[in-house]
Deep mutational scan, measured.
Amino acid sequence: TEIRININGVTIHVRDASEELKKLIEHLLRLGADEKEIREVLHRWEK
C-alpha cells in the first residue's frame, strides 16, 4: 500500500506501507506528531 501524509504543507510519501504502519501513523497524527517525529518513526520502522 502506498500512502502520502501531508503535515503542514510537507508531504511524506511512503511506499509499501503495511496496514499496521498506516494505523500507527494515523494514531501518531491524532496525537499531534509533527513531520520530524513521523519521519523518525518511519526511519526506525524500515530497519
Rank of each mutant, 00 (worst) to 15 (best):
L29C: 06
I25W: 01
E26M: 08
I38H: 00
K47V: 14
E26T: 08
R44K: 13
R30Q: 15
E2M: 03
R30H: 12
I12N: 01
I7D: 03
K23A: 14
K22V: 14
H43R: 11
L21M: 06
V14C: 04
L21K: 03
L29D: 02
R39Q: 08
L42M: 05
E2L: 03
T1N: 12
H27G: 10
W45P: 03
G32H: 04
H27L: 11
E26F: 08
S18P: 15
K36R: 10
S18F: 04
I12T: 01
L28M: 15
V10H: 12
E26S: 06
A33K: 07
L29Q: 09
L21E: 02
S18A: 09
L24S: 06
R30V: 15
V10G: 08
V10W: 00
L28H: 10
I7Q: 05
R30Y: 11
L28P: 00
G32P: 02
R44E: 15
L24W: 07
R30T: 14
A17W: 09
E19R: 05
D16I: 06
K47E: 14
I5P: 01
E37W: 10
K23Y: 11
K22N: 09
R44N: 14
D16V: 07
K47S: 14
K47R: 13
R4H: 14
I12K: 01
H13I: 10
H43F: 03
E2A: 08
N6A: 11
I5W: 00
E20S: 09
A17V: 12
E26W: 04
L21V: 06
L29N: 04
N8C: 04
N8F: 01
E19A: 09
R15Q: 11
L28A: 13
I25E: 00
E35H: 08
V10N: 10
G9V: 03
T1G: 13
N6C: 06
H13G: 05
V14I: 12
R39W: 06
K22D: 03
I3W: 01
N8P: 03
R44S: 14
V41W: 05
R39A: 05
N8K: 08
S18H: 09
D34F: 03
W45M: 08
A17Q: 05
T11S: 14
V41N: 06
E26H: 10
I38S: 00
T1A: 10
V41G: 02
L42A: 01
L31H: 14
E37I: 12
I25M: 07
A33R: 05
L29A: 08
E46A: 12
K36L: 11
R4E: 13
G9E: 07
K22Y: 13
E46P: 11
S18Q: 10
T11F: 02
E19L: 12
L31T: 14
R30W: 13
T11G: 11
D34G: 13
T1K: 09
